[in-house]
Amino acid sequence: MLSQLRTLWTVLQHTFTKADTVEYPDVMPYLPPRYRARIVLTRDPDGEERCVACNLCAAACPVDCIALQKTEDDEGRWYPEWFRINFSRCVVCGLCEEACPTHAIQLTPDFEYCEYNRQNMVYEKEDLLISGTGKYHDYNFYRIAGKAISGKDKGQARNEEQPINIKSLLP
């Protein structure tokens, strides 16, 4: 009983404490860069699409709201032919970003993407792709992985020797 009364008293005291509410949108809150909201596809430092259409984000997505189709250019570079996120299903959990091996898919602090029409919540690649590198400025997957693409032949990735001449028997 006493504890109930004490609670009443404590709560009553809060009449004189300041409200914690931030009056969005009059006052914009500070959201750190790692805040999880709208998803974007970024580009590598060379300005090329980072996404290699590996499908790991789609596999990681707990609500299965990512779908994409792989294609590749003449030089063997993989990229998504189309990339679709159904934001009306997205729970901004960020697992896609964690799954992404190329830092392509990133969550941004921009959370203001409500729509009156639910159909407009479906974002295609053109809507997702931004022109910058996002949070990770230097990473370039193809400079590290051994697959040859335009402008980077075999042996030019990180820690790679020049290709072996298989006709040579020299050690």
Partner: peptide
């Protein structure tokens, strides 16, 4: 199996 809620979202959400 992935992408169930996005597969045909371009046609109808």
């Amino acid at each position: 199996y992935s992408g169930r809620t996005a597969l045909s979202a371009n046609i109808n959400v």
